[in-house]
Amino acid sequence: MIEVRHVSLSYGKTPALKDVSLCVRPGEFVAIMGPGASGKSTLARVMDGLYLPDAGDCLVDGVSTRADPMRARRLVGLVLQEPDDQAVARRVADDLAFGPRNIGAADIPERVAEALLQTGIAHLADRDIGSLSGGQKQLVAIAGVLAMRPAYLVMDEPTSLLDSDGKRAVMDAVATQKHAGRGVAVITQDPSVAARADRVVVMSRGSVVAQGPPAEAFAKVPPGLIGLPEMTRLSNGLRDRGIAVKRLWLTVDDAAEELCR
């Protein structure tokens, strides 16, 4: 489990995180939402051991990132927003070998093959990364961290620059990793991504302002802070127009079930 306990962190005098607590369990998909500059990206880097908290602590499987940041980086794979900025080599397979080489792995070819299979891009192994689509590049970035066999994945806005096809491919990869027992945390501005999570954490100005299963978190969040899933907007809209809606909707099924009766 990744446990963030009462973490505070400042850049110089600007506070980025203020007493933030949350956890990501194995096999769980947690979505982290919030406006720009609310501390989401900083939080991702704390979970990965890239930044150490000023106060509080972050534990990865029971060990503080402060005690062993390198262990945290091995156990927590971090995927960033821009598909172009994560490749260190030109050929896909060479890029995937980068992480395992850094940790001195003996079975690099096996790890590369395994990561290619898990992300469904084995056919791209010999391609030049520059020639791939944005979605494919993002899958390469995910495969690049999977080659290090992490126990958790933390993704910082992995779909925001992708089109519908790319988004679908990345979300499929998230589902696969969750089912393989990895804990996945996805930072996102996209409510349709968050609607599929087990838990949603909403941040604002460095603090957690709502946390819980999606329906609960979306109901608690201050209006106008984040975008809401379309079906949630619909159930709110119907309520505003005087139609009784039993509960807050997340999916088309929720809405169809109640309306078609």
């Binding site: 880097r45 990965d48 890239l50 390198m70 980086r73 091995r74 794979g77 971090l78 960033l80 900025d85 994560q86 260190v88 980068f98 992480g99 850094n102 940790i103 970035a141 690049g144 961290v145 290090m148």
Partner: peptide, 8 residues
């Protein structure tokens, strides 16, 4: 950052 995250 991406390289550090991959344990460089």
């Amino acid at each position: 950052t991406a390289m550090e995250a991959r344990c460089y």
